[in-house]
Design a protein around this nucleic acid. Structure first.
Lengths: 119, 119
DNA sequence: CCCAATTCCTACCATTTGGTAACTATCCCA
DNA sequence: TGGGATAGTTACCAAATGGTAGGAATTGGG
């Protein structure tokens, strides 16, 4: 049992969850990773993530960029073109992300049908 | 590129995040896994998670129990004793969780110092 | 008789999150 | 002249999240 306390307080999960545990971040990373070219434009992502509002997508991308997981390349053209891609740090997260996805696929039925509602 | 759309819409990450992507769930799983006996009582968990309020801990535990990740054993004593432990499904999540933690440890410095504030 | 210990629950409140709809800016094209 | 395309932003609003403080239930101990 030793010093779980210290380990707990320093546990990186807190950082991970607080930064990418939101509704859309991991899905953006998933999509960028799936892309053939490794690069996607704003409205291209939107076309896949039909259930994510424009505002939330731009907010999510900004957040991912600030946290150095996504690279944002602006081409000064008209109309403007902006391309998003994974940074090396972003790519390094993919194995852990895949592990989570795989877990979800395997164990979904053991969890589904249970209500999420807490109150 | 094929049919990312379908893959996206069915992506288990959405379920995973929506259920355990909150502030405390993964930390509880982390602690239960670290425990020598595999079993922890309510106030025992609280003593480690000093920054989680009583209300949130009980809410989190209830949620984890409803999602079949944590088992709750009540002993009809006075004062009451309740023991929490990981279910098999809960244990099966540990490798993926460890991968996330390991990623956090390795890449934390590439992400830290960046503000989380979006607006 | 009151307090302690245990495992919560409840009321109340502030903050955060996320959605909709409309707006901006630019230039090309019809 | 007036869309259309691109990549957003902004204002406004509703819902979810999380915190504090106190209550509830039980029974043994001083």
């Amino acid at each position: 049992m030793a010093d779980i306390q210290a380990e707990y307080l320093a546990c990186p999960i807190r950082q991970v969850v607080s930064r990418f545990g939101d509704k859309w971040s991991l899905l953006v990373l998933f999509l960028l990773n799936k892309s053939d070219t490794g690069v996607m434009r704003f409205n291209e992502i939107r076309r896949f993530m039909t259930d994510c509002s424009q505002k939330m997508l731009s907010q999510t991308l900004k957040n991912l960029e600030q946290n150095n997981l996504v690279h944002r390349e602006v081409y000064p053209e008209v109309p403007p073109r902006v391309e998003y891609s994974l940074t090396n740090t972003g790519k390094s997260l993919i194995p852990a992300l895949s592990a989570l996805i795989a877990w979800g696929q395997e164990h979904f039925d053991e969890v589904v049908n249970k209500t999420v509602i807490i109150d």
